[in-house]
Simulated assay, not measured.
Amino acid sequence: MFTSSTRRTRAATIFALAAVLAVAAPVAEARPGSGGGMGSRGSKTFNAPSSTTTAPSAAPIQRSQTQPGPAMGNPGMSSAATQRPRFGGGFMAGLLGAGLLGALLGGGFFGGLGGIASMIGLLLQVGLIVMVVAFAVRWFRRRQGNPAPAGYARSDLSGNSNPGGYGAAPGTGTGAALGAAPRGAPQPSIGKVDIGPGDYQSFEIALNDVQTAYGREDVQALRNLATPEMASYFVEELRANESRGVVNRTSNVKLLQGDLSEAWSEGRMEYATLAMRYAITDVTIDRRTNQTVGTGEPEALELWTFVRERGGRWILSAIQQGR
């Protein structure tokens, strides 16, 4: 039988344990890309990566500058558009009927040239207006139908829409379009890419370099290691941490298991998606007190997609969470 003092003692113990747990650092994933799938995988951005032993499946990409075209996500758009009546069809038919009716009411269909001449004049004026409107509509559609190529950052946080060196061909110093073709443009043909030991070594080095640069909040290094799109997402995350008064420190990255999900080419661009399970020290620290306020899981399972111009250097273009 429990006395009231015993109950009070146990309650105090429970409250003390709760206080300790509240003070202890909660588990909080804060490594780059842990918030959800982001980036671009060319024409395969909205397709699930091929299953591997390391990652049987992957979460879909949620943030991307690649826009679904008619072949991706809107397959019925073209056929529906062709079934719409042409502009002015019913309107012109109505005017023609009205003109004929007016001619008949005015004096019969053959009752003089006055009614017919006025009807023809009206039709000519309306036809001219329709031609002008149709020309203006086509002109505006052409102007709006060519968005920026996917993979380019529309604007980074420093206000520069195309930082030098992003995705540039070796030695050119200018940015290259790293992603799918613009919406409405013909999709490039898909080819095969052979991945060798040197490529796998580059992927493992990139895994370490990106995590280290993120932990140091080294924006310039991240811009050299990733596409403009991915770098802009990283900068957003770092600034969000800064606004909350915390900093994320990632270190001790070690690849535990990895395999190739798929590798392909689109025109002059080459892509490779890797499933990687790796160990990592992921700690969130209060900037003011330098106290640990959160820790991440000691292991992560992700799919990283890399892109390069044929013969160039691999850079990161997408991260998805494995499962």
Rank of each mutant, 00 (worst) to 15 (best):
T54A: 14
G97L: 14
G99I: 06
R268W: 00
R287D: 09
T82V: 05
T295H: 07
Q83W: 07
S50G: 04
D209S: 14
Y278Q: 03
R183I: 14
E242L: 12
G90F: 10
N252L: 12
E302F: 04
T54R: 09
S265N: 00
G102T: 08
I205C: 04
S57T: 12
L105Y: 10
Q187E: 14
T273A: 15
R142M: 11
R268I: 12
A169I: 09
R216H: 13
P182F: 03
Q291L: 14
A226N: 15
Q220C: 00
N241C: 06
L105K: 09
T52P: 00
K254F: 07
W304S: 00
N224F: 04
V20T: 12
D218A: 09
P182D: 03
N241L: 01
A24T: 14
G36Q: 02
G165S: 05
G198L: 09
Y214L: 08
P68T: 04
S118Q: 12
P188D: 09
G196E: 12
A80V: 10
R63Q: 07
F234T: 05
A93H: 10
A93P: 03
A48L: 03
G296A: 04
S251C: 01
G106T: 11
M72A: 13
A24K: 06
D156K: 09
R288N: 10
G245H: 03
E217N: 14
G121V: 06
Q211S: 13
G175R: 02
Q67I: 15
L101C: 07
Q220S: 11
G99F: 01
G89C: 00
T273M: 09
T273N: 07
L105Q: 12
G69T: 04
